[in-house]
Design a protein around this nucleic acid. Structure first.
Length: 260
DNA sequence: ATGGCGTACACCGTACGA
């Protein structure tokens, strides 16, 4: 089973890229982030035509997440229960691939945080604390859990093109990294780290200053796997192909393969 | 040191992202 994640930065704009990518990469499941549209605007027909079921948690202008799956999506759940804000950042569903292989998948869009010391940064840290408790609950109920998405955290300096310049700033600050490690401490494994570090480890590049061409990137999109799934993970790939297209998303899709 | 690029909404610029 292949599970992917992609922050599309506006599904309306990026739909042609997504459709082309799914045709070339017919993954079983993909989590999408930053849809920037409401559920009624979700392009369900085009995606169904490619064989995908969809579960959507949309929002006007900002945020918005979804799951697409070739297998039926069951027990769809939106947002964190009891976390009262109007940001649509989480959707979860159980993918039933027919055999004994049921996988719970979460597509998450962690807050950006704007800058260290701001209210948005404080919100990000509060949100991550709630996210940890939410995922702990998921882990109590399910063995095979995959948490994919845009975490907006570069876990280590090796995940940053210029660690000196980024030191202590948002996406790289120690409290954010500690929050990421706290997710790992629940028993979730960063799938990227299961394999030798690839030549190109980044998943996001600024639109400005030819950052992609110069490979000035960050690794901030992640797939976290529960121990039973980590055992079955045979690859982690970052696909920079769509980042080269006209009007690309600033994020690249990532894909894991699970031997289920 | 700053802003740079892109998207959305709606106003003719502002908010937001990472």
């Amino acid at each position: 089973m292949k599970i992917a994640s992609w922050n599309v930065n506006s599904l309306r704009v990026r739909l042609p890229h997504l459709l082309d990518w799914l045709k070339a990469n017919p993954v079983d499941v993909i989590g999408l982030q930053e849809l920037k549209l409401v559920d009624e605007q979700f392009p369900i027909a085009e995606l169904q035509a490619l064989g995908y079921h969809a579960a959507v948690n949309g929002q006007k202008t900002y945020n918005g997440v979804a799951l697409l799956s070739r297998h039926p999506l069951e027990h769809v759940a939106r947002d964190m229960p009891g976390y009262g804000d109007d940001h649509r950042r989480i959707i979860a569903a159980t993918v039933n691939a027919g055999t004994s292989s049921e996988v719970r998948v979460v597509s998450a869009y962690v807050p950006n945080g704007h800058a260290v010391g701001t209210e948005k940064y404080a919100y990000k840290l509060r949100w991550l604390q709630a996210f940890k408790e939410y995922l702990n609950g998921e882990l109590c109920r399910t063995q095979q859990l995959a948490v994919v998405g845009d975490y907006n955290i570069a876990p280590t300096d090796a995940d940053v093109h210029d660690p000196v310049r980024w030191e202590g700033s948002v996406l790289c600050s120690e409290p954010e990294r500690a929050a990421f490690r706290a997710l790992e401490a629940l028993g979730l494994k960063d799938a990227f780290t299961l394999f030798p570090r690839p030549e190109q480890p980044y998943t996001w590049w600024d639109y400005r200053s030819f950052a992609f061409r110069r490979n000035l990137g960050l690794r901030i999109d992640h797939v976290l796997l529960s121990a039973p799934l980590a055992q079955k993970c045979s690859s982690f790939q970052i696909d920079t192909t769509p980042r080269r297209l006209e009007r690309p998303s600033d994020h690249a899709p990532v894909v894991v393969n699970l031997n289920l």
